[in-house]
Design a protein around this nucleic acid. Structure first.
Length: 456
DNA sequence: CTTAGGG
DNA sequence: CCCTAAG
């Protein structure tokens, strides 16, 4: 039975993929194609946030060069050219910064440059002109003997990606000790799970302070599907558990909370869950009640977890879609839950991406042509009928008006504290603008200005 | 069938 | 989200 379910999931997932590719050009969503595993490591330095349109808002203390360009994207507006890509270079650099012994002009610089120019096939390169001193220094830090021959050897080895095998273990370790730990893209990610044990050891040696954080990050993100621990399952079903974790993944949680998708390109799976938005209460109830982290897949919650996993697996290849729309794959209406009123039976959460799609559609077609919008922007989704779109738009308008009337910032903080999802200014303004243009009670009276579009 | 409007 | 009436 699990087979049939699986098939079903796949088809649904495929649908979604199809949809995503179809609306590819229309989406006003960030395409962080290049976000890789490495990014999860860099987060702990910067507190990164993402507004609704997916723009990264950095609040970094140190003036980092590479972030300037990305910050700019927040100013562009809602154009579709927002490939605010974050390169692994950042991660590398951060780590190196943390590990005290590397300076800005070290090997990492090459990484970043390389990354910015090439998409995924960028092979890390170490600058040849590395002076001996630096390497010696590295060796010193990593408590290794400084043998010059070894260094040269390592230097050459660093140029080529190393697949993790038992034979290569030593190479990798030495690389790690050289501070290139976080350029994990060098190695086959499928072998990373095995690898990370040793890497942890190594990093303990090289920098105990940092390792604490690193370990917790690793706990959160087991990179191999074989290593899908029960913990991860629980994380997926109830991501808020992460809040109990230690400082390192606070930022990670924040990242997820901002619906930022981390994707490992080319690797089979990255099991970093995306959406941290708190599901409606009744879902939480369901999950907390029945999730036993066992193999049983009878309850709706288990189905949910399973769905998430499979969706993660198969979605990793498509480089589109930053914000996974779980509700598009999961029918959460399994149980006739609680004392919920009869309607809202099949309520599925509108994701950020969907909202953006909707807004795009409206700005494209105008209000009222819901069918068209649905056809163009929600092609393969069986749910999200034109009526749903209209309803959602109605709600959005209401909400945006309310939000704009009240103080934005205040609300923002408040709702973030409460864990509510907050539509950020950009889309908010867009909504209100459209609302002004097409007031919801469609009053297309040319003679009189619509009253409902009361100025804020 | 699509949309508007109310619940 | 559901239901219904109106075009």
């Amino acid at each position: 039975m699990s087979e049939g379910k699986d098939v079903q999931h796949r088809t649904r997932v495929r649908d979604v993929e199809e949809e995503e590719t179809e609306v590819d050009h229309l989406l006003a969503e960030p395409r962080n194609d290049r976000v890789s595993v490495d990014d999860c490591f860099r987060v702990d330095n910067k507190s990164r946030d993402v507004d609704i349109s997916g723009h990264e808002l950095y609040t970094c203390e140190e003036g980092d060069n590479y972030e300037k360009d990305q910050v700019k994207h927040s100013d562009i507006g809602l154009d579709d050219k927002r490939s605010a890509s974050i390169g692994p270079s950042a991660a590398c650099e951060d780590y190196l910064l943390d590990t005290e012994f590397v300076h800005k002009d070290s090997d990492c610089e090459d990484f970043s440059r390389e990354e910015s120019s090439s998409t995924s096939s960028g092979k890390p390169r170490i600058r040849n002109g590395n002076d001996h001193d630096k390497l010696c220094k590295l060796h010193l830090v990593s408590q290794r003997k400084c043998g010059c021959q070894n260094q040269i050897k390592e230097k050459t080895e660093l140029k080529t990606p190393i697949l993790y095998t038992s034979q290569n273990r030593r190479k990798l370790q030495s690389r790690l000790e050289l501070g290139s730990l976080f350029s994990t893209r060098d190695m086959d990610l499928a072998s990373f799970s095995d690898f990370h044990r040793s890497s942890i050891e190594v990093s303990v040696k090289s920098n105990p302070r940092k390792t604490e954080q690193f370990l917790s990050v690793m706990d959160l993100t087991s990179f191999s599907g074989q290593h899908q621990s029960s913990e991860e399952a629980s994380l997926i079903s109830n991501p808020w558990k992460t809040k109990q974790f230690s400082p390192a993944e606070k930022s990670l949680v924040r990242l997820n909370g901002s619906e930022q998708d981390m994707r490992v390109k080319g690797s089979a799976e990255s099991s970093i869950h995306k959406r941290l938005r708190r599901p409606p209460v009744r879902y939480i109830d369901e999950f907390s009640g029945s999730v036993s982290l066992s193999d049983e897949k009878h309850s709706a919650s288990d189905m949910f977890v399973d769905n998430l996993k499979s969706s993660h697996l198969s979605q990793l290849d498509s480089d589109e879609e930053n914000d996974l729309d779980e509700p598009e794959k999961v029918s959460l209406a399994g149980k006739g839950s609680k004392n919920c009123s009869d309607r809202r039976k099949h309520q599925m959460i509108w994701t950020l991406l969907e909202v953006i799609k909707l807004v795009d559609g409206i700005s494209h077609y105008g209000v009222g042509r819901w069918t068209e919008i649905q056809r163009l922007f929600f092609p393969t989704s069986t749910y999200r009928t034109p009526v749903d779109l209209r309803d959602k738009w109605r709600n959005l308008l209401k909400a945006s008006n309310a939000w704009i009337q009240n103080d934005q910032e205040e609300k923002d903080e408040e709702s973030q504290k409460n864990g509510h999802r907050q539509l950020q200014k950009e889309i908010l303004h867009r909504i209100s603008e459209l609302g002004r243009l097409y007031p919801y009670p469609v009053k297309r009276t040319p003679t009189h200005t619509p009253k409902s579009s009361s100025r804020k």
